[in-house]
Simulated scan of single mutants.
Amino acid sequence: MKTVFAHRGISTLAPENTLAAFALCKPHGIGWIECDVDILADGTVVVSHDDTLDRCTDRSGSLYDLQAGDLAQIDAGSWFADQYMGERIPTLAQLITLVNQDQLNINVEIKSCSAGWAMTERLIDNVIAALDHLDDGRQLIVSSFNHQALAEFKRRRPQTAVACLYEAGQLGEDWLAVLQQCQAEFIHPADHGLTQQMIGDFKAAGYRVNVYTVNDLARANQLFNWGVDGVFTDIPHCFPAKYRAIGS
């Protein structure tokens, strides 16, 4: 079964990484979502790609200066469209409630916390605590570009499948050793520059392969024909129904 992941929710129809974007998945028959998580000063895990507010809210500044109580005053939707005015940055706990309610599967990307290793460890611990509230039957992958953090997450929660993320051009000859060190089940490479040979090498080594970010249906089809297991996309609702089955 090939998988389509809603990248930050259906992020072309609603503001990325908001409950509004994730809530659109079930009505469109999309079974898998992808989100990014980082941490506030008080340890609250929030769903946000950036560690600053500047790009996707009506405020400027660092996540690491905020408390949970500040979220109610931050608008994360009006930049996208009038109808999303007042949309908030969600906590991971809030997203997990939605995932359970809508019976979604979830890929949680742990961001490379720029506040330092101590905060990264706190992020890992608090992500684990939140994930303990996922219902039985919900499928889960945890991924990160920070392979040290990913290995530490896997050490603390070995039952969870993990994925090593790689930016375009960053796949070195040591990729297999890195995946083994992280005890990863998946590799998540960037689409740009990805070749059939590379995918063949990943598959031959026993890894499942999910590629980001694929917003072209013909390219997605090519990747699937090369043996890719899944793609992350901003337009999951545009994919044929065979890729969008809830629970797949």
Results as ranks from 00 to 15, higher is better:
L71Y: 01
N105P: 01
D54S: 11
L134N: 07
R155M: 10
D132C: 12
A68M: 09
C56R: 09
L150G: 03
V162I: 11
R59Y: 03
T57P: 10
Q159C: 10
W79I: 07
D102W: 02
R88Q: 13
M85P: 01
D58R: 02
Q83A: 14
N100G: 09
E152Y: 11
Q139R: 14
T57M: 09
A161V: 08
R156L: 15
V108G: 04
L150I: 09
L92D: 04
Q139I: 05
A72N: 09
I96A: 06
S143R: 03
H147A: 13
I89P: 05
I74L: 02
C56S: 11
T160M: 09
L171N: 05
G169R: 03
E173Y: 12
I124H: 00
T44I: 04
Q139T: 07
A118R: 13
F145H: 05
L98R: 08
M85G: 13
H133S: 15
L123I: 13
D82I: 13
N100A: 10
V99K: 08
T160I: 15
E87T: 14
R156E: 06
N100K: 08
C164R: 02
Q148L: 00
L98C: 09
T44W: 05
N105Y: 05
A41H: 01
P90I: 06
R155K: 15
D75L: 02
V142A: 07
T52G: 00
V46L: 07
V142Q: 04
D54P: 03
A76C: 02
G172E: 11
L92K: 06
N100I: 07
A68S: 12
S143Y: 06
W79P: 02
V127L: 10
S78K: 09
L171T: 05
K154C: 06
V47E: 04
E173K: 14
T97L: 09
R59Q: 14
V45C: 14
L53M: 05
D65L: 05
Y166K: 04
V46E: 05
S143C: 09
L95Y: 04
N146G: 08
V46W: 05
I106L: 14
F145M: 05
R59A: 14
H49N: 12
Q94D: 15
Q101P: 01
V108N: 04
I106G: 02
G77K: 08
A130W: 03
L104D: 10
A163E: 05
D125T: 15
H147W: 13
Q139A: 12
D42R: 10
A168N: 00
W79A: 06
S62C: 08
F153N: 02
L53V: 03
R157G: 05
Q159T: 15
Q94S: 15
R122F: 14
W79S: 07
A81G: 12
R155Q: 15
F145D: 01
S144T: 10
L66H: 03
A151R: 13
Q67M: 00
A72Q: 12
T91K: 15
I110R: 03
I128V: 15
T160W: 08
Q94C: 09
V142D: 03
V47K: 02
T91R: 15
R157H: 15
N126T: 07
Y64T: 06
E87I: 11
D75K: 03
G61A: 12
L40T: 01
L131K: 10
L40F: 08
S144D: 07
E152W: 11
A81I: 04
S48H: 01
